Amino acid sequence: MLAESESDKVRKIEQLAQQIAQADGSTLFDSGHEAAKAPVRAKALRLLDQRMRSRKELLDRLLAVEEFLPAIVEEVVDDLARGGLVNDKLFASEWVRQRFSLRGKSRTVLDRELREKGISSADRSDALEQVTRVDEEMVARKLATKKAGTLRCVPENYADKQKDLRKIVGVLARRGFPSDMSMTVAREALDARYEELG
Rank of each mutant, 00 (worst) to 15 (best):
W95R: 01
K12L: 14
K146Y: 09
L190E: 02
L114G: 01
Q19W: 11
V65Q: 13
A140P: 00
R133E: 14
D123S: 11
M138K: 15
G84P: 06
R53F: 02
I13K: 14
R193N: 05
C153W: 13
E74H: 07
M181S: 04
L48S: 06
G149M: 09
N157F: 09
V96I: 03
L2D: 14
E129M: 10
R103C: 07
I168M: 06
D164F: 06
A71F: 05
R124D: 09
I13N: 13
G25M: 11
D135Y: 07
R51G: 10
V185H: 03
D24K: 12
V171C: 02
E129A: 12
L110E: 00
D8Q: 15
A3V: 11
Q98S: 10
T132V: 07
F68G: 01
N87M: 05
V86Y: 02
D24M: 12
P70S: 03
R55C: 06
L110N: 03
Q130S: 12
N87R: 05
K105Y: 13
A159V: 11
S26A: 08
A189S: 12
P70I: 01
I168W: 06
S7I: 15
S31L: 10
S125Y: 01
E156C: 08
D88Q: 05
R166Y: 06
D78R: 08
S26C: 08
L69M: 07
V40W: 00
S125D: 15
E195D: 13
E94I: 00
A21C: 13
M1K: 15
K117M: 09
S182V: 04
L62P: 00
S179C: 03
I20T: 11
A21I: 00
K142F: 08
L69Y: 06
A35E: 14
R46I: 05
K37Q: 13
Q130G: 06
V134G: 10
A44S: 10
K161L: 05
A173L: 02
V134N: 12
E116K: 14
L16F: 13
A36P: 00
E57Q: 15
E195A: 09
V169K: 04
K89S: 12
H33C: 07
L190R: 00
D78H: 09
E6M: 15
V40F: 01
D180I: 01
G25A: 10
E136D: 10
R11H: 13
Q130R: 09
E14R: 11
S93G: 10
R112A: 08
K43W: 01
G32F: 07
N87I: 01
M1V: 14
K12S: 14
L151I: 11
L90S: 08
L59F: 04
M52N: 02
V40L: 03
S93T: 11
L63Q: 03
A148R: 04
L48M: 08
E137V: 09
R166L: 12
K161T: 07
D111N: 12
R51I: 07
D78A: 07
R103D: 15
K142Q: 15
D126Y: 01
S101V: 12
R107F: 02
L85T: 01
E67T: 08
I72W: 02
Q15W: 09
A159R: 13
G84D: 06
E57V: 00
A140K: 05
E57A: 04
L48A: 04
R133M: 14
A140V: 02
T132G: 07
R166Q: 14
E75P: 08
